[in-house]
Design a binder for these strands. Structure first.
Length: 458
RNA sequence: GGCGACAUCGCCAAGUGGUAAGGCAAGGGUCUGCAAAAUCCUUAUCCCCGGUUCGAAUCCGGGUGUCGCCUCCA
């Protein structure tokens, strides 16, 4: 299995630290608002990474944090005029709701920043004692000059950083590139007691503390979206490695951005889409298909027309599964034929190559095609098995069934029987009228050699 | 200003040296009373210029264009 490592800018063979185990950490949301569709892309993709590792027999320890104390929560609290803790609670709950709606599996550890304040203070003290951090007027900063590898992930040089740094209002910093470890609380702001007075931890520290506690000093994969490379991940490396002298993570994975009409999504451009709003209009699977049909490191343009295409494309899978009358409960562990094993291998090869989900989806279409022509239900099972790795086909049994109550179904069958008589009498006018009227209320009739069947259309 | 990414059919998108996957859309045929569904067929030489090579979408150089990071950001 090969994974692109941002640290080396190359695809590298993935070798877990501990055989059969993958320890991964993904930077989660800051709960100051509902999360947007760009966040959804990242969360969704790493959910697939996790599923794939498990599919390949790894035990995955997956940590995802929730940042529930941050400047942005404080700002939002003023805006909504409710306490910071309420903001955190409200948007954490919303986050869980949206994640569930996206059919993203729960990580093995979902840790919150505020539960690790003591550990963060201890870490900052340690950094101070070792000369990597300094206190000024109640704030504590990390001195980037003291950490010689600073910039190794983002490829930035200290000189460039200095030159590029904007005029800093913060005169407490010795070097403009120094970053905040501990921030002094203003009156009325949430705060915790510390050796430097009342304040709160900086964002970059929480991930270091949580990953160390839950995964150890060095783990396999640290991930997030590209914008986290600098400064967030760079700063994590600085803190963690300054103390441990060991690499924080073996692999650094970063997902590409989601753009709107070619531009980055931002509030100032008013091109902001919340995940929950998109979910109101589009099925979660269509959203998933839309994301996974492109490689995770490429930027992707969010576009409703393409989302609609995704809906169409997915119908392919469902219609063939319906047509062959597949039931997920049948054939728990079928013996695959050579041809089926070959397709499965193709799927694995695609995923092994830095999670090439676009190629993997193409294999799914190939399976659907063969399923259609052979009617061999083992292909249906294979489609289901591999589709699930990408997070598709949850509640498949449910979706393959009609979603009508018994009476409605009886009524439709009754109409079909009348229509059959009209057809027999060559009363096309009446037969067509029934079909047209049913279509208007969302029921599509199809005359097949085996008789008339119906399905619900949207 | 510094650093980086990308440019493949109408649209989306794989493909990193051996002669262009797949999906959506479109057109045509088969099937059908007509539809729908299904099925078959059709549709690109890869932004431009130059170079390396027996051979390049794939490597190198130069353009052009788009985007990102350098400040909070998934």
């Amino acid at each position: 299995m090969k994974i692109y490592n941002t640290m080396t800018r190359k695809k590298e063979e993935f070798i877990p630290i501990e055989q059969g185990k993958v320890k991964m950490y993904v930077c989660g949301p800051t709960v100051y608002n509902y999360f947007h569709i760009g966040n959804a892309r990242t969360f969704l993709f790493f959910d697939v990474v996790r599923r794939y590792f498990e599919f390949r027999g790894f035990e995955v320890i997956y940590v995802k944090n929730i940042t529930d104390i941050d400047d942005r929560l404080i700002e939002q609290s003023i805006k909504e005029n409710i306490p910071v803790s309420e903001i955190a609670k409200k948007y954490t709950e919303a986050y869980y709701e949206d994640i569930q709606a996206l059919e993203i599996q729960k990580p093995t550890h979902q840790s919150k920043a505020t539960e690790y304040i003591d550990e963060m203070i201890a870490l900052i003290q340690d950094l101070e004692n070792k000369g990597f951090a300094y206190e000024k007027n109640g704030d504590v900063y990390f001195s980037v000059e003291k950490f010689k590898d600073y910039g190794k992930l983002s490829g930035k040089k200290m000189e460039d950083l200095k030159a590029g740094a904007r005029v800093e209002e913060n005169l407490n910093k010795r070097n403009p590139a120094d970053f905040t470890l501990w921030k002094k609380a203003k009156p009325d702001e949430p705060n915790w007691k510390s050796p430097w007075g009342k304040g709160r931890p900086g964002w970059h520290t929480e991930c270091v503390v949580m990953s160390k506690k839950l995964l150890g000093e060095t783990f396999d994969i640290h991930a997030g979206a590209v914008d986290l490379i600098f400064p967030h991940h760079e700063n994590e490396i600085a803190q963690a490695e300054a103390i441990s002298n060991k690499p924080l993570a073996h692999f650094w994975m970063h997902g590409g951005f989601l753009n709107i009409s070619g531009e980055k999504m931002s509030k100032s451009l008013d091109n902001f889409f919340l995940t929950r709003d998109v979910l109101k209009k589009y099925d979660t699977e269509a959203i998933r298909f839309f994301f996974l049909s492109k490689h995770y490191r490429s930027p992707i343009d969010f576009n409703e027309d393409i989302l609609k295409e995704s809906v169409q494309a997915l119908k392919n899978f469902y219609s063939v599964l319906k047509d062959v009358k597949y039931l997920p409960s049948m054939n728990e562990n079928p013996e695959y034929t050579d041809a089926q094993i070959k397709l499965k291998k193709q799927f694995n090869e695609a995923m092994d190559d830095d999670f090439n989900t676009a190629k993997a989806i193409a294999v799914l279409f190939e399976i659907a095609k063969v399923l259609r022509s052979t009617n061999d239900l083992k292909y249906a099972h294979l489609l289901n098995e591999l589709g699930k790795v990408l997070g598709f086909f949850s509640n498949l049994e449910e979706k393959l069934k009609s979603s009508l109550d018994d009476v409605s179904e009886e009524l439709i069958l009754l109409l079909i029987r009348y229509r059959s008589q009209f057809k027999k009498d060559k009363n096309w006018k009446m037969a067509d009228a029934i079909r047209e009227d049913l279509k208007k209320i969302g029921i599509q009739l199809k005359d097949t050699p085996e008789g008339t069947v119906w399905e619900i259309i949207k």
